[in-house]
């Protein structure tokens, strides 16, 4: 293992990549950089998710709620929200399957479009501007991890550093309980959590149109690039809009993880991340060979 120049993961980060949200990569204009890969030969896209539809995998969308009646959603297993009870204490309670903001429905629709067989649950943590993202996010995530979901889609993050330590503990707990958190990188070049933790799968955008194309990023913190620019997404009221943001890249990877888990249910989070890595478009070619000689 003697790379001739400094490998991407040891390099200074570039400030931004023009044309896509922060941390993203304009793969339509510039091919992802080549890097050294140690292939595990038998893992291919076909092995990873060929014939799978996500059946048997439970996914929690932690967001603004999900409109269960939307044709692209086709129903939810259950719907919850973080509520404030007397004394300001936060807890999770069942609620109507609605989404006043639209963002959660968009994310859920992307997951369903890739893995139509998954069982989706919505957990609304962004209730209003006043609650802020931190407290409700902590309460909600903690609940979701204990509730035994296989995957948690988290297309949001908090910039509040006082939550860092407890979020880190939650992310570690999720990891060891085999609840994989798929987290979107922030849309601005700022530090936020938990997508920057190594125990989660972090996702930023590429600007191609294929929902199944994704790349491993050899210069993290955003570990994968998936479709995130002008994505057709479900919106409350049975409509569809096009939206741009790392928020919509993450549910593509959540959907792909659901496919992989439905075919290989006993993968641990670190194995699942390895499979994602090995089946990415820049670590394989179509016939499954490593792209680096």
């Amino acid at each position: 293992m003697t790379p001739t120049s400094t490998p991407p993961w040891r390099r200074e980060k570039r400030a931004h990549f023009p044309g896509v949200p922060a941390w993203g990569l304009a793969t339509s204009r510039q091919a992802p950089e080549r890097f050294q890969v140690s292939p595990l030969a038998e893992v291919t896209k076909e092995w990873a998710w060929g014939g799978a539809d996500g059946t048997g995998v439970r996914v929690c969308v932690v967001d603004t709620g999900v409109d269960a009646g939307h044709p692209k959603i086709g129903g939810l297993e259950r719907s919850f929200q973080v509520v404030s009870v007397d004394g300001g204490k936060l807890m999770v309670a069942e609620c109507d399957p609605v989404d006043p903001a639209g963002h959660g429905t968009a994310c859920a629709g992307v997951i369903k479009s890739i893995a139509p067989g998954v069982a989706l649950t919505s957990l609304r943590v962004l209730t209003d501007g006043k609650t802020g993202t931190g407290d409700a996010l902590m309460t909600g995530l903690s609940w979701a991890i204990d509730a035994g979901f296989d995957l948690v889609n988290l297309s949001l993050s908090t910039t509040r550093s006082d939550f860092r330590e407890s979020l880190q503990e939650l992310a570690d707990r999720a990891y060891f309980r085999r609840c994989l958190m798929v987290a979107a990188a922030h849309n601005m070049p700022v530090l936020s959590f938990p997508w920057t933790f190594s125990s989660v799968v972090s996702v930023a955008s590429h600007d191609e149109a294929d929902p199944m194309t994704y790349y491993y990023n050899p210069a993290p913190p955003a570990e994968f690039h998936a479709r995130g620019v002008k994505v057709p997404v479900a919106w409350p009221g049975g409509r569809e809009i096009r939206s741009t943001g790392n928020s919509f890249a993450a549910p593509h990877i959540t959907g792909i993880c659901a496919l992989i888990l439905s075919k290989h249910p006993w993968l641990t989070p670190f194995q699942l991340k390895t499979v994602l890595y090995l089946a990415a478009d820049n670590t394989t070619t179509q016939n499954g060979e490593g792209h680096v000689p």
Binding site: A101, G102, L126, G129, T158, H186, M188, G245
Partner: peptide, 18 residues
């Protein structure tokens, strides 16, 4: 907490909708 502006305020993230 309603609509795009509501999501942006609650999440602290920018967004584009076409």
């Amino acid at each position: 907490g309603t609509g795009i502006v509501g999501w942006v305020a609650a999440s602290g993230q920018p967004m584009v909708a076409d």
